[in-house]
């Protein structure tokens, strides 16, 4: 149970911070696609007989780079949809090869926070540190290129390379978070809290902090409720994400 709280909290912090940029850059689809595509990695890992996190660590950067490089030419939304589908198809193939029980597949898709081990917590902590360091390093160019790409380019920011780095960052977050909240709902945590935070605060740093706070509350609530009811944690995360968003829209509408 302690492990679950720790792992869940780490995921919430990273998702809140990285999610701030996901929403600012309008990268919702990529944030959904990278975790979903990484499912192939988890399924593949079970074919080879290695821990799922190894498969995630290999496949999520592949998905991120494929989306980034193929989408550079044109129509990045189409490319994202196709890369995600291709990876999921591969996942379906791997699944047909394994003798994995449906409940374990289900856990990968929808999360199983209560099964987190101590080693996984340490791994999560290391990845969290790396992700936060990356965000701190890229903060200013990422912020500028998100809101005014042309201006950033004129100042010498290599926006295309930055976009690719950001996708890889998403892959790191995916590897970290998928074992906890699952491939399908990982992105709810990356989009819901930051989208809601925007209604309450005006500056970038405050929005990031609020987003982390909301994500933490969401995860804690979801873990507690999942523990009480034995229902899947993904259910509570998904519903809470939407509830925060609705609350934020109401606040924003009342202010206007």
């Amino acid at each position: 149970m302690t492990n679950a709280w720790l792992a869940g909290s780490l995921v919430a912090v990273v998702a809140g911070v990285v999610g701030f940029f996901v929403v600012l850059r309008g990268a919702t689809f990529a944030a959904h696609g990278v975790p979903l595509a990484s499912f192939a990695g988890a399924a593949g890992a079970s074919v080879v007989g290695v821990p799922a996190v190894v498969g995630l660590a290999v496949f999520s950067p592949v998905a991120a780079v494929a989306i980034g490089l193929l989408g550079r030419r044109r129509r990045s939304d189409v490319v994202t949809a196709l890369v995600v589908a291709a990876m999921l198809g591969l996942g379906a193939l791997f699944l047909s090869w394994t003798v994995e029980y449906a409940s374990e597949i289900y856990a990968l898709l929808f999360g199983e926070v209560l099964g987190v081990t101590g080693t996984e917590v340490w791994l999560s902590a290391a990845l969290t540190g790396a992700a936060l360091l990356a965000v701190a390093t890229l903060y200013r160019p990422l912020l500028l290129s998100s809101v005014a790409g042309e201006v950033a380019e004129a100042r010498g920011v290599r926006t295309a390379r930055l976009e690719l780095l950001f996708l890889v960052l998403m892959a790191v977050v995916t590897t970290l978070a998928v074992p906890v909240v699952g491939t399908l709902l990982m992105f709810t945590l990356m989009v819901g809290p930051p989208a809601a935070a925007r209604a309450f605060v005006r500056s970038p740093l405050a929005a990031m902090a609020a987003s982390v706070g909301i994500a933490l509350v969401t995860v804690w609530l979801a873990i507690a409720l999942a523990y009480e009811t034995t229902w899947p944690i993904g259910f509570f995360v998904g519903i809470a994400g939407a509830a925060w968003y609705v609350l934020a829209r109401v606040v924003a509408a009342r202010r206007r």
Binding site: T28, F29, G182, G192, A195, F235, I239, G241
Partner: peptide, 17 residues
């Protein structure tokens, strides 16, 4: 896209259940 994502998240949560 954000709105789509939020709807999607809520429905997936329900699907999980």
């Amino acid at each position: 896209d954000v709105a789509t994502g939020i709807v999607l998240g809520a429905a997936l949560g329900a699907a999980a259940l």
